[in-house]
């Protein structure tokens, strides 16, 4: 692809992404553009016009994505969330404890396995993070009540998590102060490995969609 068409393809890809098109759809559309330009001898701009306008028109015709959760990506997100929860509790335990052992309380446990994952899911999942676009003003997010509701819920959960930690302070067991940081670090490494594997398999699926 000549430089001029590469610039066109970049702009087209960005606008398709903004419109919510998936990597597979974008790859197929670019394959169509390449084939058409090779046949006609025209540049992408001559054959398809302004890349943003074309991307907007094409994305409007693509079938709507099925609402649903990518379970693998969701699993990675939860692993990362629990890892951060463990690291949070672990770093505080390390700072506050002079002994080798720290108390494992119900509050800490709930914070790690419930509050932190719920907070991360609320703030990081696609529907909360990516606000829909109004076709009339595709360059900026549209107002979406769910987005604000998720932000307020996330704030509430952070407060609840802190309250659990402080309030439910009955010791269940005494554990090594290195347990939380160790588990957290290990889980973080595992989650990033899983994220890499999921991303790689998604990229392979996208590249084989348009041979």
């Amino acid at each position: 692809m000549p430089d001029q068409d590469s610039a066109w393809a970049n702009e087209f890809t960005i606008q398709m992404t903004v419109q919510g098109a998936g990597a597979g759809d974008i790859a197929k559309a670019l394959a169509d553009v390449r084939a058409h330009c090779a046949d006609s001898g025209e540049s992408a701009y001559e054959a398809f016009g302004d890349p943003k306008t074309y991307a907007t028109a094409l994305a409007a015709e693509l079938p709507a994505k099925q609402p649903g959760i990518d379970l693998r990506a969701f699993g990675v997100l939860l692993m990362t969330a629990v890892a951060f929860g463990l690291l949070l509790v672990g770093s505080v335990s390390l700072a506050e404890s002079r002994d080798n052992e720290v108390p494992l309380t119900l509050g800490k446990l709930l914070l790690v396995v419930v509050a932190v994952p719920a907070w991360v899911v609320l703030t990081q999942t696609r529907w909360a993070r990516r606000r829909p676009r109004d076709p009339a003003t595709p360059d900026r997010p549209a107002f979406d009540e769910r987005y604000w509701r998720a932000l307020w819920l996330a704030l509430g959960l952070a407060v609840v998590g802190a309250a659990l930690w402080i309030g439910l302070d009955r010791t269940l067991w005494s554990v090594s102060k290195w347990l939380f940081p160790g588990l957290g670090f290990g889980l973080l490494v595992l989650s990033q490995l899983a994220r890499w594997l999921v991303t790689r398999s998604a990229a392979e699926a996208g590249s084989t969609a348009a041979p």
């Binding site: 169509d32 084939a35 058409h36 046949d39 006609s40 054959a47 398809f48 016009g49 015709e61």
Partner: peptide, 26 residues
């Protein structure tokens, strides 16, 4: 796509640009 555009032109409908044709095909 391109062959369809050629066929449309040969039928006397003029040059149909990719920006018009491909969204319709989609």
């Amino acid at each position: 796509g391109y062959a369809i555009a050629q066929r449309l032109e040969a039928a006397g409908l003029g040059a149909v640009k990719g920006g018009t044709l491909y969204p319709l095909l989609a």
